[in-house]
Design a protein around this nucleic acid. Sequence first.
RNA 1: GCGCUCGUAGCUCAAUGGAUAGAGCAUUUGACUACGGAUCAAAAGGUUAGGGGUUCGAGUCCCUUCGAGCGCGCCA
Length: 595
Amino acid sequence: MRKELTPQNGPPSATIGNGMADPLQLLSQRFAEAFAALAGSAVDPAVRPSEHADAQVNGALSVAKALSRPPRDVANDVLGRLGDVSDMCETVEVAGPGFVNVVFAADFLNDQLRIALSDERLGVQAAPTSETVVVDFSAPNVAKEMHVGHLRSTVIGDALVRMHEFVGNRVIRENHIGDWGTPFGMLIEHLLDLGEARATEEFSVGDLDGFYKEARKKFEADDIFKERSRMRVVALQAGEEETLRMWRVLVAESTKYFNRIYRQLDVLLTDDDLMGESTYNDLLPVVVERLRSGGHLRQSDGADVMFLNGFTNRENEPLPLIIRKGDGGYNYATTDLACVIDRVERLGVDRMWYVVGAPQAQHLQMVEAATRAAGWLPATVEMRHVAFGNVLGSDRKMLKSRSGESVKLSALLDEAVERARAAVREKNPDLEAAAQDEIARMVGIGAVKYADLSTDRVKDYIFDWDRMLSFDGNTAPYLQYAHARICSIFRRADVARDSLAATLPSISAKEERTLVLGLLQFDSAVRDTIDKASPHRLCTYLYEVATAFTGFYENCPVLKSAEPVRSSRLVLCDATARVLRTGLGLLGIDAPEAM
RNA sequence: GCGCUCGUAGCUCAAUGGAUAGAGCAUUUGACUACGGAUCAAAAGGUUAGGGGUUCGAGUCCCUUCGAGCGCGCCA
């Protein structure tokens, strides 16, 4: 069976988040003082990774302009005010038009690595204050198949949840499933026609699209059925008990199905995270009443609407946000407003992140504008659209199955595992069948997730089995392989990884220093990824670590080296494996110990 | 028509306003009886869609043209 679905970080403890930072940040702090002394005000030293050194400081160039002085003079002046940095730096020198190139002292890097390794979070600092973050993601529809369209929201949202939890924020996952609205009249009537037993069976084999399409077909072709459906919607909204019971059957069967997909995908979502549209029904009249009493509602073509500054329709007239339809019903905008009230007033959020496709941008902007205007969303609370692009086929059009339909998520994940299984069987035929299955699952699911997470989320990406399952390049299998290789070294060495706790790393070769410098930037990588809500930044970082490890592995023999080098290198191996495993874990991807 | 997003090597993708725009694949050349060959090294490949501007410095910011995708009143 699968492992349990708990996040990997334990509860905060005294041993984590102990204030260490990556070398570039520490360097930045030192330079900030020198720049402030020189310029008379706070200046960002602009410390960056460099191809010419371990780090470069760019601040002198921008300051020079303001001071009307030659940049190199300013850079030299800064160095003069820097004080003694020999504890940290081996060399500090002005280069080019006014850059300052810095090479760190090996002992300093050794120390920082030792500190990071004593921390179960590997140096990643806790959020300054623990914030309450709602992440709204996945959101499939009841009685409908989950398809590739749900992949990105689910995978990206899950990764962001894991990262927020990792840095100590209080995260509330919200799965805003589509469990209400006019289609339920037709779905319930179709359920009645089929009989519950048969309908339940259809759901359990995962053929939800068939169920939905049959209902839709009858609705369009059969006026009597259509009328029954309308009446059923009225009964549902009126809370008629038998109707509600059948509605619950539909929801329960659907969520069972969603959960199967979520376990298959290995994401954290459970029934506890369900916050369907129906959850907010009682709040909808409150939304209207508050807006009305606040003087925010206007009448337009019989509907209650809000007009918000800056939104116009195709005739260049003010574009309304429809709060209550002409027929008295509510639509999704009203529900989204209720969501904001719930999250702010009941949950006390600091941040709301909507992991929703890019086409919803205008809608979410209007929801934000409306709730800010109504005074429900304080300026201190962040509302952020974590937008993403489409999954495309090799033809650069929306990914479709051969028959032209959207691809079922379950079928796609099955295929991923099957393809991974074939690769594992071919490459490592000695593995036991059970191990092969488990590794195939980790590799196949990991490949799909990583392909989705490793490119800038706002862009479309092209879905390509061969590329995502390749062991070369920026892929999950490559990172997993690097991790498995390290585990193999320890098996051969017959050294327990935790026995190295007292061993101090000692950098000598340049490949070691490159690797260590990379490992020490885990903190920055994670926090930058959260700041930008861009998982691909963490992916790029992990790929760079794996690449640096490959360079180390090729040039720095581990097991063949004499002590104390051997032990020091084993520490670097252990550190790399921990960063890779933890980093992949933050993306929701497992790292097998052999593959 | 208005608005949003995107356009980087043959392909797929990176790149906090910083030095010579980086990777992988594919191509070409080479290395080693191997701490896991699922390897490594090297070469070649670019007017960052075009044009203008801001800046000491622009793939990145602003304007504009072209191209692609998506939104724009009672579905969600």
